[in-house]
Write a protein that binds this DNA or RNA. Sequence first.
DNA 1: GTTTCATGTAACTAAATTAGTTACGAATCT
DNA 2: AGATTCGTAACTAATTTAGTTACATGAAAC
Lengths: 137, 137
Amino acid sequence: MLVHMAEAGGRALTSEELSSFIHTNPVVVRRSIAGLREAGIVASSRGHGGGWQLGRAPDQISLAEISSALGETLLPFSTEPESPGCLVEQAVIAALEDFRTEAERLLAEKLGRITLADLAADFRRRYDEIGVTSHAV
Amino acid sequence: MLVHMAEAGGRALTSEELSSFIHTNPVVVRRSIAGLREAGIVASSRGHGGGWQLGRAPDQISLAEISSALGETLLPFSTEPESPGCLVEQAVIAALEDFRTEAERLLAEKLGRITLADLAADFRRRYDEIGVTSHAV
DNA sequence: GTTTCATGTAACTAAATTAGTTACGAATCT
DNA sequence: AGATTCGTAACTAATTTAGTTACATGAAAC
């Protein structure tokens, strides 16, 4: 959805339009990206001509920020104790916490280098490629 | 559960015993760790005196192997195309695939350095600590 | 100022996943 | 033979997620 916004040239896209891109429902779209507003990644406006657009330039929006704004974790496990007092769990959690700290730093650093502008550029490259192919055929 | 096996001194623990450690059901235990058998991480035996034990020494079992044998992914997202033909999705997946390749290598390398023996040693340290505290009080 | 358009959000439904449970057959030891 | 334990199927319940409907709020157009 964000790539589509980046490609929209400043025009606001409605959740109706966005939902058709990913074959889902407008309400699902609004729910999904509402969390990006507070982080300034998107801006929404109501009424005629309203909709969604990027909150800043695509090269200033990294995948790390998006992930963080969506409240996603970068690692697929929890370190919440489930049996407080269990020493085995404590040992496992201690090891995983150490691992998590460094791993998340590494992942965030890597994802921070990929921006929406990169994705949009790659999308455009593929788009032009198809265009050429179509002409050739 | 594997730490408990490591601490059991070679004796096989029943799924009944293991399930009581983590407050769950014997069948859930069997289902959960069945996948570790094929990887040689655990061995199970039936009948009287049967149960579960480690398939090799705790210092030869890394968290990376356990994670892999359980079929877990190290990263919490999928790169399965959902709309084949969507160029935006292709661009996103391409970027994430690159990221995933290096990230998984890094994570596996880190998790490969943590072994069951490390966890068991930390567990034992905590256990002795409690013992001392209890005596002191 | 009324109409139209679009978001914000609550409430409900349906589907998918997961944990838990019961039951029983197969294997193994005493 | 009998007791024990895993292996596995089948079912139930709880949780999560996506999808849908409905409607209030806000903003532009006329």
